[in-house]
Design a binder for these strands. Structure first.
Lengths: 209, 209, 209, 209
DNA sequence: AGTTAATCGAGACGGTACGTCAGGTCTTGGC
DNA sequence: GCCAAGACCTGACGTACCGTCTCGATTAACT
């Protein structure tokens, strides 16, 4: 059925056909993710229906189910891709400045109401949809790794003690962020970012003394 | 809902009659809250329907809507009532011990998978239901107040500096708690409670130095 | 609905409740049947969807499924009710005239393209839907009974022989009708009705000689 | 699909290349018709899908659409080919015997439940599919022609009067057959065939007297 | 004691969204 | 260029819930 001469050694291992038929269209996949993210940002996140997604993406409903197992899964992936606007770690030479700037940058992204709504939806979906939970776990792990590399630079520079509990520090930073985001009792602005940065540096230095 | 003053002639004819008819049955209300909490703890939170609540409580659906404006509202109230098992603040004389014990007690309550699921559901519901959001805000405000009173005792005793940023400290404590609860990347056990307690005391003491 | 005078001993005999809840709304049922018949007559019978029925009747989709088990069933009942416009048997004193007039009247009803389409749809649905098949059987049995009573008058008057095979005569009459209706190779007009009437009388008279 | 003879000049410019590409595979066509007929006879006619046909025939879906314009068309052709098992007209010298035998032979074929189901499906499909309607018309026209030739022999032999209404007689015969087949209120067995034969001869003889 | 009216459990109502299934078209790599 | 496979868009299906409305029964204050 295929050309034996082209891959003589492969035939032995894969005697049967691997695939036939039309290939999946990655453009459709992208259009769906794009549409989901836009709808989450602009429309009311609650009323996000599969039909609306399909309509906005110019795609059939079945195609969505072909790529993702549930609505939560596609929502999660869309938000990881869209909301994961990379907040870069700067390197100014001063660890304290870099940390403060990192937090300020993150909080600045969260000024956007659409991003806020999208992230809240992601957490909500993760509570009852296993796929969304997986996506959220992956998303947050990535974010924690970024912050960890920054904190490790602080250890190297001596701003943080060598035995600082980095895992806890990271959870403190993102914990405050998510807690305020989800409950909404306190602002997420530049002042909050500065306070949080001060807190992290203070405790980390103290930890080694 | 309408104003009787707009119909003065009726007041003349029925000046005294305040109310007639059967009174609401508080037992039904309790049965509903009880049923919701049980379903949240045991069943899969996703499939929590009004029908299921009514069935479990032995109640008609309309009765639920008579007492609460939305599913999120009744869920929220049930969880505030059920999950709000009071974790008392102890007074052993040592602020540090009391703080550590407070966190350990809270984390012990969270060992229960049902409580965990219920709290996660509450946060999820709050993201798309205004009533649930209100209930969550009230719930968390109450919890923050409790912790704040404990921390103020720490200031009084001199364990914390007088100008410590209590609001931030509280958000750090609950932020770590909720973040780990919602994302699930790290355990919520006695060790975590101790680490968190140490962190809070260390930073707060440092802050005033 | 029940007799309260039976009162004190009631609990013993009927310990359980007979019925609670809102009663079914016969008006909705009628609206559905009406809408189905109109859609079958006017619209293209092929594209008759449950949604279209529900929309035309101003009814929810579930209500249709509450009353009938399948689309074929509701189609069948609608057509039995709508297309079963009673063609009365006349009694002019002359059996032959009455038979001829009966056939002419039936064929006249079939001049209406909508009725034609509806009847064809009924037969089509009956081929793959058991409920529709039942409705068709009932419908045709009723029609055969009507014709049989007319033919029996013919026997009484001596126009038909006493041992005429009435079952076959009836099937001949309706067989020709349905065959032409379904295949469409020959017209169903007054001339056809007269020919068919002549045929029936001729063969039935002969049969006894 | 186009006629090469219509473009003689093309042959001059490309004298050698008569045709490129794989030729249509008539075997695939046969396999499809065979598969459709088998599925109609054995499986439930209702759930006959294009996918099922393609699968049973070992054929791609597109191949079916290359040969027929719609599902009704392929169903109709399959049934005309499969169910059109030729019932030959015999010539024993006796018209009455030949007619009776013809009807008995036809009814014998209809003993097969699969044939019955297939024919009912054909009629059902013809009610909403123009292609199937065409196929049914062609099929029935062919059957009527066969019976007509037999009846004309009856006129030649003097068993039928010269001015008998052959069109009506044919419709009576097939009408009774289809009516009983579609409604199912009476059997289609040898006894029924004999009754029908007697009826036809009786009326036809009488008609000329 | 009788009247009046709001509540109760139950369940039908008009809707909206779901996830699946089928139809007919388009695309891919192989022949 | 035909073929099998299968992804694509479309649209109907039957189900699950939603929040409201209606039913007979119950219950409690006011007459």
């Amino acid at each position: 059925m295929h050309n034996d001469l082209a891959a003589p050694t492969r035939d032995v291992r894969r005697p049967t056909r691997q695939h036939t038929g039309r290939r999946r269209n990655a453009a459709a996949r992208d259009a769906i993710l794009q549409a989901v993210f836009e709808l989450l940002r602009n429309g009311g996140g609650s009323g996000l229906t599969i039909d609306a997604i399909a309509g906005a993406a110019g795609v059939g409903r079945q195609t969505i189910y072909r790529w993702w197992p549930s609505k939560g899964a596609v929502m999660a992936e869309a938000m990881v891709r869209g909301a994961g606007a990379i907040v870069p770690v700067r390197d100014s030479g001063s660890f304290k400045d870099d940390l403060a700037q990192f937090l300020i940058d993150i909080f600045a992204v969260l000024e956007d109401q659409g991003i806020r709504r999208a992230l809240r939806q992601l957490v909500a979906a993760a509570q009852y949809d296993g796929h969304a939970a997986g996506a959220l776990a992956e998303f947050t792990a990535q974010r924690r790794a970024t912050l960890r590399s920054l904190l490790e630079r602080g250890i190297a520079s001596g701003d943080l003690s060598a035995d600082a509990n980095l895992g806890l520090l990271i959870d403190v930073a993102y914990g405050v962020l998510w807690y305020r985001l989800l409950v909404g009792h306190a602002p997420l602005d530049a002042g909050a970012a500065r306070d949080l940065g001060t807190h992290l540096v203070a405790v980390a230095r103290r930890a080694g003394e």
